[in-house]
């Protein structure tokens, strides 16, 4: 067994978290919820007392939504995935994972800088928020797909960029464009997760007790 094979075993173990599609379903639903929040914010007339409530709600959803979603995914995995194909608990990123976090932060920082610069110097459609969101999410999905060896994430990355570009070309305002991007991307990610879950359930059965 050579080093390459060892790396593949480690990569496959990391990939297991995504094997049942539950994480994608949860993330997709979060995106749709964000899209609905943004759409409601867009629809509410300026100066309405509902506007700040919705803004605070969106911030809370983005900042704190990850924790209950992660707990819900774990609870469903406990009932669906672990009895079929086994239980795995992942390590929290320690010092060895920090360089990746630093590089990811640098990448996101550069992307934000790119958005700001494009807003200053480029035509309006190029500076669209939806386009930036689509490309940024696409880059994150590409990185995850490469790191975990998940080919369907390459497809999702392409679709993210495509949705971002199409929404930008339609010339929506930033709030409406973001709502359209998150809503559509959320549906795509949820559909991908549901398809993955169906395939997983078909291919795996709980072990028969002897």
């Amino acid at each position: 067994m050579m080093k390459n094979d060892i790396d593949k075993v480690i990569q496959r173990t990391h990939r297991y978290w995504y094997e049942d599609g539950l994480n994608e379903i949860a993330t997709g639903c979060m995106f749709v919820l964000c899209g609905l929040f943004l759409l409601t914010m867009y629809a509410v007339p300026p100066g309405s007392p509902l506007a700040p409530v919705l803004a605070i709600g969106l911030v809370i959803l983005v900042a704190c939504g990850g924790l209950p979603v992660s707990r819900a995914v774990k609870a469903v995995k406990n009932r669906v995935t672990y009895p079929r194909t086994g239980y795995v608990s992942y390590r929290r990123p320690g010092s060895s994972g920090r360089p990746n976090v630093v590089w990811a932060s640098v990448g996101i920082g550069l992307a934000v800088l790119g958005i700001i610069l494009s807003k200053v110097h480029a035509p309006p459609w190029l500076g669209s928020m939806a386009m930036a969101q689509g490309l940024l999410m696409g880059a994150i999905l590409l990185y995850l797909g490469h790191r975990l060896g998940l080919t369907r994430f390459y497809g999702l990355a392409f679709l993210s960029a495509l949705i971002g570009v199409v929404v930008a070309l339609n010339g929506f305002e930033d709030a409406l464009g973001s709502a359209a991007y998150f809503g559509e991307m959320g549906l795509v990610v949820t559909a991908s997760g549901l398809f993955t879950l169906r395939t997983y359930l078909r291919q795996s059965q709980p072990p028969v007790e002897e």
Binding site: M1, I6, V9, I10, R12, T13, H14, Y16, Y82, T85, G86, Y87, V88, S89, Y90, R91, R92, P207
Partner: peptide
């Protein structure tokens, strides 16, 4: 030993894994 190397490589990537997961992998 190859079988133990796979077991150790799997456990290296995670905090913990159960017998069923190791059996399948």
């Amino acid at each position: 030993e190859p079988a133990r190397l796979i077991i150790v490589a799997i456990l290296y990537a995670v905090e913990s894994a159960d017998f069923l997961y190791l059996l399948r992998e």
